[in-house]
C-alpha cells in the first residue's frame, strides 16, 4: 500500500541547523508524532562533515576551513568526510520508523532499498546510475552520490548527497590527505572516480534534480510525498539538539 510521506524542501541552511533538523525529525518521526519524511537541503556556508567515528584533526585541515569560511561538523552517522559545497550538491535525508514496512532490519540490505530511490531518480535525468555497495551511487563507474545511515531513538535516518558540481582542488585543501605527496595523484584520482550532474549532463537544474529524486524515491519506497513544513515541536527540538550537540566543541572533537 502506498505510504503518505511528508516532503520538506528546505533550501540552504548552515551545517549546525541542517544536522540538528535531521536529528529532530528522526526523533519526532520515531515516536509517531509526524509521518515518515523526505527532506532536501543545501549548505550555506559550505561545510565539511565528518563521520561519527572519524578523528576531526586526522581528517580536516581546520585552519584551511577557517580561512575559507567553511563550517566543520561531526555527523551522527558513520562513513567518511564530505565537503558540502554550497552550490555543488543537493543533500537529502529520509527519516522513518524503525519498524516501517519494507525496511530491512539488516543495515546493508536497507542501503540497497533506499539507494534504489536515488538510482531511479538519476535515471529519470538520463543518467546511467547504478547502486555501488556499500553506500554509493555511480554513473559510468564514477561516484555521484554517497550515503550514510543511523538507527537511533527507534527510527532510521539515511542522509546523503548528490554531486551537482565538483571542486576537487578546494576539497583537498580542506580535507587532509594521508600523504601530502599524494595530493596530485589524489586530484587525478578524484577526476577519474567521481563525477557530477554537470559533468554528465553539461548543466544542472536543481529543481529538476529534486523532482526526479522525489519520483525515484516514490517508486522505490511506494511512497506519495505531500509537501509540508517542520512542526513547531521539531523546530524547538532542533534548536535544543544544536545547542546540546552539534554546535558544541566537545562534540566536534569527540574523536
Amino acid at each position: 500500500m502506498t505510504q503518505r510521506w511528508r516532503l520538506l524542501l528546505h533550501g540552504a541552511r548552515n551545517a549546525f541547523d541542517n544536522m540538528a533538523i535531521d536529528e529532530a525529525i528522526l526523533r519526532t518521526v520515531a515516536v509517531g508524532d509526524v509521518p515518515a519524511t523526505l527532506r532536501f537541503y543545501t549548505w550555506e556556508p559550505s561545510a565539511v562533515s565528518i563521520g561519527y567515528f572519524q578523528g576531526v584533526e586526522q581528517e580536516v585541515d581546520l585552519a584551511a576551513c577557517r580561512r575559507e569560511g567553511v563550517d566543520v561538523i561531526r555527523r551522527i552517522t558513520g562513513g567518511g568526510a564530505v565537503f558540502h559545497d554550497r552550490e555543488g550538491e543537493i543533500t537529502y535525508s529520509l527519516m522513518l520508523q524503525g519498524n516501517a514496512p519494507g525496511v530491512p532490519q539488516n543495515v546493508l540490505d536497507s542501503y540497497g532499498v533506499f539507494c534504489q530511490g536515488l538510482v531511479l531518480g538519476l535515471r529519470r535525468l538520463g543518467l546511467e546510475a547504478t547502486f555501488a555497495p556499500i553506500n554509493d551511487i555511480a554513473v559510468n563507474g564514477r561516484k555521484i552520490s554517497g550515503n550514510a545511515q543511523t538507527r537511533r531513538f527507534g527510527g532510521v535516518l539515511q542522509h546523503g548527497t548528490v554531486l551537482c558540481d565538483v571542486n576537487p582542488a578546494l576539497m583537498f585543501t580542506l580535507l587532509k590527505v594521508p600523504d601530502a605527496k599524494l595530493r596530485d595523484k589524489l586530484l587525478q584520482t578524484v577526476a577519474e572516480r567521481v563525477t557530477s550532474i554537470r559533468r554528465e549532463l553539461g548543466a544542472v537544474d536543481p529543481q529538476a534534480v529534486i523532482e526526479a529524486l522525489c519520483a525515484g524515491f516514490a517508486a522505490a519506497l511506494d511512497a506519495e510525498f505531500i509537501p509540508g513544513v517542520l512542526t513547531e515541536q521539531e523546530a524547538q527540538l532542533a534548536q535544543q539538539i544544536k545547542g546540546e550537540r552539534y554546535a558544541r566543541r566537545e562534540w566536534l572533537f569527540k574523536r
Binding site: 563521520g51 561519527y52 567515528f53 572519524q54 578523528g55 586526522q58 551522527i76 552517522t77 558513520g78 562513513g79 567518511g80 568526510a81 543495515v107 556499500i134 553506500n135 550514510a148 545511515q149 543511523t150 538507527r151 537511533r152 574523536r255
Partner: peptide, 15 residues
C-alpha cells in the same frame, strides 16, 4: 586506545 575511521557500526556506541 582510540579507534577512528570511515566505517559504520550500529549501534554506534558499540565502538
Amino acid at each position: 586506545v582510540s579507534i577512528t575511521g570511515d566505517f559504520f557500526m550500529h549501534p554506534e556506541e558499540a565502538l
